[in-house]
Nucleic acid binder design. Structure first.
Lengths: 237, 237
DNA sequence: CGGAGTCTTGACTCCAATCAACAGCGGTGG
DNA sequence: CCACCGCTGTTGATTGGAGTCAAGACTCCG
């Protein structure tokens, strides 16, 4: 029973049934502000899962049976680009919804892959429909989160797919991977940065190396620490 | 009263109150399948507007008071890129929703500008809330359309922001601007293509000119006619 | 220790950005 | 009416940045 076990690569472990009442607090992700009675009697239970790096939540084309909420960690959504090779469409951290196709019951549009060890809640489609039927308020939450996801997609377009390569790398670290206040973020592999920014791994490597030489960033234990001031300057290019 | 008048540049005309019952047919955009009683007694009327090219529906940062449905024409959503210059995030045709921020009442994320003469329905936020309260079914429609919009955003990422410039142009014409069956589409200005593909106007001009020389496309009266076979080949680059 | 995978660095090529000039077109006003 | 102007699109010459190909260095593990 791996509740506290460290998660190795591609490992998936069942942590337990989620106590969704805890998520009905105002700061909850999806069920915020919903009545406890509804959440106490779910048709199908919500499972909490622990996932090792490189494991997959689902693959593109599958029928979407589950919606996931990210509790800790990082998930990437990957699509194959027509020019060949995988393209990361966005990365999703705690508080995000993964697999919103499950709301409408269509096929998953992406492959969802774990970047760093992650905990998620897996919500079956039936449970979602059940709760939404009893608490229409849930629709409002879903729409709000959908709006937020759309904002993220737009940021990938304007911020990570536009302009010079070095500006894109800087903006990735500053805006996409770190909280507004913080000056650290997870260190993605060069390959992941490459697939997210649509530049080659060599170019990413060169730029990151150059930032290090300039003392703008430090990398250790899978974390990046950076000088927000300096990087912001580089981000305008 | 400009119902049938031709729309000149930057011109906005009021066509009339929309008869939303007509949109309750199964093929309606937003109000499909909703009961006529609700639609007959709207708190605030839905206006139909005619818009000339280069007029704007709203600008980035404004509070979102209206949701728009596109009936005919083409709208572009524009954001300023951090590297300077405007970036078109997506283009929306008939059946699309523009200004979904109005659902949550936040600020508009983009500036919405008219590309070719367009007719829209302008739905006030209060009307939306009113109808949604009486017909929760509306939420389902909204979520589905939001999902579709997200798919479009993802296509801009994987298809229009990735790979060689000539492939991007080809995919823009084939997938983004034309219906699956058809072999024609509206002819965007080079500048708009440029802002959508994140390449310079000169590069777009050169590529389009080259496609014409190869007999892959013909341009006349603001329309483009193309050889789907041949362009598909160029799209893989 | 060895080997696979990831990251780095170098040398070279090439595509697209830049700078610049010009053609076409519609509109405006003398 | 025609000359002028602004706007859009085209084309050329040149530059620069990122892609490509190739060789090492490093890290993590068995």
């Amino acid at each position: 029973m791996g509740t506290n076990a460290k998660l190795r690569c591609r490992e998936v472990s069942w942590i337990g049934h989620a106590n969704c009442k805890l998520c009905s607090r105002p700061d909850g992700v999806l069920f915020a502000g919903l009545s406890n009675e509804v959440l106490d009697h779910l048709l199908v239970p919500v499972d909490q899962l622990g996932l090792g790096a490189k494991s997959t939540l689902y693959v593109q084309g599958e029928t979407a049976h589950y919606l996931f909420t990210v509790r800790e960690g990082l998930i990437k959504l990957v699509q194959d680009a027509p020019s060949g090779g995988p393209r990361i469409v966005r990365v999703l951290g705690p508080g995000s919804l993964v697999g919103m196709e499950a709301i409408t019951g269509e096929a998953y549009r992406h492959t969802a892959e774990v970047v760093v060890p992650t905990k998620v809640c897996r919500i079956p489609r039936e449970t979602l429909k059940d709760v939404a039927g009893k608490e229409p308020k849930l629709y409002g939450q879903l729409l709000q989160i959908a709006q937020h996801t759309l904002d993220q997609a737009d940021e990938v377009i304007t911020s990570l797919s536009t302009g010079a390569a070095q500006g894109r790398v800087a903006r990735l670290l500053l805006n996409t991977l770190s909280e507004p206040g913080s000056n650290t973020c997870v260190s993605l592999s060069r390959e992941d940065m490459s697939a997210l920014l649509s530049v080659t791994v060599e170019t990413v490597s060169r730029i990151v190396a150059e930032f290090k030489r300039q003392g703008l960033i430090k990398e250790q234990h899978g974390q990046m620490e950076f000088d927000r001031e300096g990087l912001s300057q580089a981000a305008t290019l």
